[in-house]
């Protein structure tokens, strides 16, 4: 049982990382549908740099940089040139999928020594919990720390207040003298950086391989998670564990011989995503109240 729970936790780490980044971007009012593409760029960068240098931590840094740079492309278009965010985001996913495949082609079939687990002294000796929570790798700890930091940033810091203001009403924020575009640009790039780290987790921890499109829809699940969490950091944790759990439970179901078509079981994580989105948007007022008011709106600072 321990081992299963540990597998669930590991599966949800990339979701936590990507969703945390996207949450910040969306709270600033930018909807970036390119998470999948940014994750793939992160994954390929992590794998390539790790296999060339032999150092997975360099790989992690490369992934963060690759994710951030991919996000920067998005920022140039949607913020600088005021393009449609949905269309640009979709294009970014297709772009990231293609480019990562191209960059990664020579690395297919290779393998790397990924991130090693780092036990936290004392805490890792706790029964059960020690094994589940305190014998992970640094990137996993990083995911939890970043989530906590983001929660603090949004709710307790002045900068977080500005970010929320920009997302809720960019005209007012602009009138108050805040640079809407600069705030959004930073938020988008942070989102990309986190997506890159999420991507790095796949080849560096989950399986030491690169394969084209290896994120297999995790970026989209992370996007749905942000809505599921109704843009609140604490709920991302619950959502990520839930989605990670569903991903693993369908494999467990098969191993135990549950009589259900495996194709149906494979659909479960995606079905759950759709179901959650439908449930949440059923109450229009609830969704409107929670969503950043100017999410997805284009800002042109002329006045």
């Amino acid at each position: 049982m321990d081992a299963l729970i540990l597998t669930v936790i590991l599966t949800s780490i990339p979701l936590i990382l990507a969703a945390t980044g996207e949450l910040i971007a969306e709270r600033s009012g930018v909807l970036n549908l390119g998470v999948e593409g940014m994750m793939l760029m992160g994954a390929v960068a992590a794998f390539a740099i790790t296999s060339l240098s032999g150092n997975p931590y360099l790989g992690v840094m490369a992934a963060a940089a690759a994710g951030a740079m991919t996000a920067a492309i998005f920022a140039v278009f949607t913020l600088g040139l005021a393009t449609n965010q949905v269309a640009t985001g979709l294009a970014l996913t297709i772009f990231g999928t293609g480019l990562s495949g191209l960059v990664g082609a020579p690395f297919v079939g290779g393998t790397v020594d990924g991130l090693q687990a780092v036990s936290i002294p004392v805490l890792s000796d706790l029964p059960v919990l020690g094994r589940l929570l305190f014998q992970l790798d640094l990137l996993a700890y990083g995911a939890f720390v970043m989530l906590a930091l983001v929660a603090w940033f949004l709710n307790k810091s002045r900068a977080g207040l500005i970010l929320r203001a920009v997302g809720n009403n960019h005209d007012s924020a602009h009138a108050l003298g805040y640079s809407v575009l600069r705030v959004r640009c930073a938020a988008v790039i942070f989102g990309g950086l986190m997506a890159g780290l999420a991507g790095a987790y796949l080849p560096l921890v989950l399986t030491p391989h690169w394969s084209e499109g290896m994120t297999a829809g995790r970026g989209w699940i992370a996007l749905a998670l942000v809505v599921f969490a109704s843009w609140m950091p604490s709920r991302i944790l619950i959502g990520a564990l839930l989605f990670g759990g569903i991903t693993i439970i369908q494999l467990v179901g098969q191993a135990r011989g549950w009589e259900m078509p495996s194709q149906f079981l494979s659909m479960l994580p995606y079905l759950a995503t759709i179901a959650v989105l439908v449930l949440i948007s059923r109450d229009r007022n609830f969704a409107l109240m929670r969503a950043p008011a100017h999410l997805g709106r284009i800002f042109i600072g002329t006045r």
């Binding site: 081992a3 599966t11 494999l251």
Partner: peptide
């Protein structure tokens, strides 16, 4: 590879 590794982990668990 990701799903194959997940499946292997589940089998082992």
């Amino acid at each position: 590879p990701v799903k194959e590794a997940d499946a292997a982990k589940v089998h082992i668990a």
